[in-house]
Amino acid sequence: MTFQQQARDAIRDSGGRITPQREILFDLLSHVEEDIDADGLYRLAAQQDPNISLPTVYRTLNTLEDAEVIASQYVSTDHERKVYRVNDKKDVFHFTCSRCGKVTQVTSHLVDKLRQELGSQIGADVLTVCMCAGGLCEDCRKEAQIMTLDQLQNGQPAKVVKITGKGAVRRRLMDMGLVRGVQVEMVKAAPMGDPVDYLVRGYHLSLRKSEAQMIEIDLG
């Protein structure tokens, strides 16, 4: 039995009518690759039929969930968003980036193991596992790690990644030996905090903070 047939049965069983709008929703649900929330489904459906209403979407999703045709899960670390998925899919859970808010679906073979372990522990048949993971996504992690030379503290070893900007200043920085991969060390700031004395290739180089900002570094 296809998902569409299951869904129609469930709606009919609860006394609902099979409208063209509902057919659109069934079709979409059977095709979406990732978990989707009510809002997302509504937006997709509205592209095909502008007459569809958000309450219809909610009602349909609730009925299908009650009939266990689809499953739901709350995602993001504070459980604020409910997403739906077609039941026959595998255990997946969500990782939410605390910086940009992007949600990524993830899965792990450990979830199955966990289900079994929990089952034998309490003698139950564990059907669903709800898990939320949070943190910095890949992009955000990279971005957060991009430090510029002016942020370097005394005693931290660092390597040059890139010189940004252009023109005379950038050229001079590169000529002075600040190229990719070279080690830099902050020695000390001038009495008024700027410029700053750095150790590069065994000699002392004084840079204004505005110039040090043009140099991206990697710690360690």
């Binding site: 920085l173 000699y203 002392h204 180089l205």
Partner: peptide
Amino acid sequence: PQPFVMEL
């Protein structure tokens, strides 16, 4: 802008 980049 002229570079201040200066050797000590």
